[in-house]
Simulated assay, not measured.
Amino acid sequence: MRKKVVVIGGGTGLSVILRGLKTFEVDITAIVTVADDGGSSGILRKELDIPPPGDVRNVLVALAEVEPLVEELFQHRFASGDGLNGHSLGNLLLAGMTSITGDFQKGISTISRVLNVRGRVLPAANESIILHAEMNDGSIVSGESQIPLASKGIKRVYLSPSYVTPLPETIQELAQADLIVLGPGSLYTSILPNLLVPGIVEAIRNSKAKKAYICNAMTQAGETDGYTASDHLQGLINHCGEGLVKYVLVNGEPISEAVLERYQVERAQQVIVDDKVLEDLGVSIIKDRFVLESNQKLRHDAMKVSEALLDLLKEQPQ
């Protein structure tokens, strides 16, 4: 019987990891944030009153088993046209299918069949949610896309409305999981919006699955400036309590000067792995060279990360 892996997050990091995981004989469920309010997703959520489709679109493409041209078509973004400019075709298709089925999750399921998706894609909630941040200076910033722009340091994030309910399927998938993975992705704007949906953290805690967090290799301007690996984990702990994950996967190798210089322009730097502090926080560290460099860009090594995560399933339950 194939093992069940549930991955929680959003953004490009989640999609990268899913491309690796889908090559292994495991059942995959991706739980995806619906807090995005920028770009095409933001326009569609405002005009059509639907959850933002952007992160879901990227995950569907990552798990799809279709011809490259179909994938390219789904990701195509219009560069002109009154009303179409800036929209991706995939976002419009998800919006259209939501309108036809009358339900965002049903729309995702239908598109999944069209794209021959290898796994299951679930929104963290079946409605739009707004992410708010209380900054270190006490001010409140609303909107996922606006939070990093404030550059004031984030004290905590929270959702509105406060009565959001998770999908029953999401709770069920977490209960049945053999491995639950958080990340990679923006800590405050991609990972935590999922965990702040009432019932999600409780479902993770109650699950008998192995639980791991993939720490970002680089800091993110306006969000995790100066954060070490333990700071990232502490951010999870501050919002969700201790003991949510047992394993933290970190990149333990230096990144080239050329790539570091390129990321300096974005005010990002390599995340320092402070092993002792991580261990004091009660986690086991999985450390290796988990990144790839290409065209002065950095991405997690999807295959290497996937293999390290799936190795956890071979361990005896503790």
Score class of each variant (00 low, 15 high):
Lys3Tyr: 12
Val6Trp: 06
Gly13Cys: 04
Leu18Pro: 00
Leu21Val: 04
Lys22Met: 07
Thr23Trp: 03
Glu25Ser: 11
Val26Ala: 01
Ile28Tyr: 15
Ile28Leu: 13
Ile28Asp: 06
Val34Tyr: 09
Ala35His: 04
Ser40Ile: 06
Gly42Cys: 11
Leu44Lys: 07
Leu44Met: 08
Asp49Gln: 10
Pro53His: 05
Asp55Ile: 13
Asp55Cys: 05
Val56Gly: 00
Leu60Phe: 08
Ala64Gly: 04
Val70Lys: 01
Val70Pro: 10
Glu71Ile: 02
His76Glu: 13
Gly81Gln: 04
Gly83Asp: 02
Asn85Ala: 08
Gly102Lys: 04
Asp103Met: 08
Phe104Asp: 00
Phe104His: 01
Lys106Val: 09
Ile111Tyr: 02
Leu115Ala: 00
Leu115His: 07
Leu122His: 03
Ala124His: 06
Ala125Gly: 05
Glu127Gly: 09
Ser128Thr: 13
Ile130Arg: 11
His132Asp: 04
Glu134Trp: 07
Asn136Phe: 05
Gly138Val: 08
Ser139Trp: 11
Ile140Trp: 15
Ile140Asn: 13
Val141Thr: 11
Ser145Ile: 02
Ile147Phe: 05
Gly153Leu: 05
Val157Glu: 00
Leu159Asn: 04
Ser162Leu: 10
Thr165Gly: 15
Thr170Arg: 07
Ala175Lys: 07
Gln176Gly: 09
Gln176His: 10
Ala177Tyr: 13
Val181Thr: 03
Pro184Asp: 07
Ser186Cys: 04
Leu192Thr: 00
Leu195Arg: 02
Gly199Tyr: 11
Gly199Cys: 15
Gly199Pro: 12
Ile200Phe: 15
Ile200Val: 15
Ala212Arg: 14
Tyr213Val: 10
Cys215Ser: 14
Ala217Val: 15
Met218Asn: 13
Thr219Met: 04
Thr219Arg: 04
Gln220Cys: 10
Glu223Asp: 06
Glu223His: 11
Gly226Asp: 11
Leu233Phe: 12
Gln234Thr: 13
Leu236Cys: 06
Leu236Asp: 05
Gly243Thr: 07
Val245His: 14
Asn251Leu: 06
Asn251Glu: 11
Val259Ser: 01
Arg262Trp: 14
Arg267Pro: 15
Gln270Tyr: 12
Val271Asn: 00
Ile272His: 15
Asp274Asn: 11
Asp275Asn: 09
Asp280Ile: 05
Ser284Cys: 03
Ile285Leu: 10
Arg289His: 14
Glu293Ile: 06
Glu293Lys: 04
Gln296Phe: 06
Arg299Ile: 02
Ala302Gly: 09
Lys304Met: 11
Lys304Glu: 14
Val305Leu: 11
Leu310Tyr: 12
Leu310Gly: 09
Leu313Asp: 01
